[in-house]
Design a binder for these strands. Structure first.
Lengths: 204, 204
DNA sequence: CACGTTCTGATGCGCTTGCATCGTATCCTG
DNA sequence: CAGGATACGATGCAAGCGCATCAGAACGTG
């Protein structure tokens, strides 16, 4: 047999390079040569990992989708120590909104893919799937909160998940566009959640 | 004198062509040649109207920003027949969210520019300004509603404007990403506004 | 009607792009 | 250690890019 190479690892490295380039100078600045340089490999290596440029971009999107989903899921899995459902909800959403400085890159990339989706059927499919997963995740948390009596039963989990996810995404966009700071966005998010629980419980 | 040309009109035509191209196949598919073809003029004409490609993109963004702002402002100006502030608010936001099929193109373009903003200082500035204007607009409507006693005084106009605008943007993203339909998004938006007014007034 | 000015569309240039090719270096197997 | 399969990276290639150039068409003016 010939020599073995850690393809999966390299694919990830390349995906990271793609994301870095997109975050820094937009999607149309991504060329195979620049990606190779950024990833510290030769152009040939990039071509061996991905048959075409579109394959590469698709992998990068799946890579970052996975990354975001995983972080949110970990947040839930780590709830071995009993945690109030409301805290769980707000923390998860705050993470999904990609507000902290570390996530800014991912937010850029995510948005770039959303903007580019109409041009690629496959990209759109990945985005759709990811959104569906995130929606289910939020709805699950809300139901969990209702089970533990933290959230009022009057809430419709699906509708509220819908609403919260849209709010989180909107805040992400606003922060990226420089319309306001991550801190302000976080406050707005928290305020809405508080408002939601408080009013709904008062209604009973 | 030599012959006269309606430059402003042509610039708009070219801007429309840019937007059509962006909406159809993304920002990186915009080339001077394609724009010229789409606008039905020669490449030379495009180059006479805009010194560089970036100038052209900038103008297209300003063009579409103006378009969106104008529509929202018209909505207010047309309120000669007395209109409930809540209706005004929801209609304005629905328009800003670019949910109807006609606005889908504009939504694509807007998002493409947001995604591309980090790569261009000037684009970012235009986006920032536009968002500030829209924020003020929504806050104004809320204050107006408070003056006409339609909205409770307990609402903080700036905070709620912040929240509503983010929600509208998030819904725009979700519709574009195919996560749900314009109709659903509209319902979610309306539900939040109702919820807001209802709960706030109950609090008194 | 002829002049002078402005506008036009085609062409050229230098460069970059995505992708294909190919000799060489590298590693596992028998 | 020899052999063969694989990965590598440099190079080539056609196409497309943004932008500059320029001869001629188109027009208002004297």
């Amino acid at each position: 047999m010939p020599r073995q190479v850690d393809y999966e690892g390299r694919r990830r490295r390349i995906a990271d390079a793609v994301c870095a380039l997109i975050a820094h100078s937009g999607m149309e600045a991504v060329s195979l040569r620049d990606v190779a340089t950024q990833a510290g490999v030769s152009m040939g290596a990039v071509q061996r990992c991905f048959r075409t440029k579109e394959d590469m971009l698709l992998f990068a999107l799946e890579h970052i989708s996975q990354h975001v989903s995983d972080r949110a899921n970990q947040r839930i899995a780590a709830t071995s120590t009993p945690q109030a459902a409301s805290t769980l909800l707000s923390h998860t959403l705050a993470e999904l909104a990609l507000l902290d400085e570390t996530s800014k890159t991912q937010a850029h990339v995510w948005l770039a893919f959303v903007a580019h989706a109409p041009a690629s059927e496959k990209l759109a499919a990945v985005l759709h799937d990811t959104y569906a997963k995130l929606h289910d995740l939020i709805a699950w948390i809300i139901r969990y909160g209702q089970d533990t009596q933290d959230f009022p039963r009057t809430l419709d989990p699906d509708r509220e998940a819908h609403m919260l996810l849209a709010l989180a995404d909107g805040l992400t966009v606003h922060v990226l566009a420089g319309h306001h700071s991550p801190a302000t966005a976080l406050t707005t998010l928290q305020r809405h959640i508080d408002h939601l629980l408080e009013d709904a419980s008062r209604r009973c």
